[in-house]
Amino acid sequence: MSLLEIKNLHVAIGEKEIVKGLSLAIRSGEVHAIMGPNGTGKSTLSKAIAGHPDYTITSGDVLLDGKSILALEADERARAGLFLAFQYPSEIPGVSIANFLRAAQQARMAEGEELDASAYYKRLYSKMDLLKIDRKFTSRSVNDGFSGGEKKRCEILQMAMLEPKFALMDETDSGLDIDALRIVADGVNTMRGPNLGVLLITHYQRLLDYIIPDHVHVMYDGRLVKSGDKSLALELEAKGYDWVKKELAIV
């Protein structure tokens, strides 16, 4: 059982504060969704937690199983059990998905220890079978010339192989057609279980038709302004973000 705690987090890019005091706790086995209009700080939140050097945490803390991870580099956070599924994954020309994941696995091993290649490929192929991914896929260069759907499939496969404690999924559904959306949703649902906590960041309700969240939070202007269960997402879909804004204005 693991716990990811975000405590009164403030994040700035340069001088500009984007996340303005956000708190949230996610336990293993839970799926949380953060919804909100564009420009409200959703992506900033996920990148700051993952350790992007351009995002400065000005106050607050992020704890993994009670220990602050803020002093850790991005790669150390990843090895501690965080995974960020990118909205726009980078291309790495000349590096096959299989070799990339192999390097990522190798990086998790103790110094001097060598990854067992045959065991690795066995595991890779079993994950690919599970996610219904074609065997040829992993010999392609990481995201190089991929369609939007292929990029997301690549993210999901990486997540399945790296088995994080917590997955932060940043607008994973953006720009996807319905088939690609299903790939992502099926992948997450397959991996869902008592050992994985998920934070879904999305603009639209439609992803939540396929991945049913345990908790839904509405983010607005750098803060979580409303929390509830999956019915909140439906209400939001029906009434629009203006409803939240109006309610806030009244408060």
Partner: peptide, 19 residues
């Protein structure tokens, strides 16, 4: 690109080397 690779657990040096 480096951040992407780091977020998969590779150190900065490993990420550059892989690129």
């Amino acid at each position: 690109q480096i951040f992407y690779m780091q977020s998969r657990g590779l150190t900065e040096g490993q990420a550059m080397s892989l690129s």
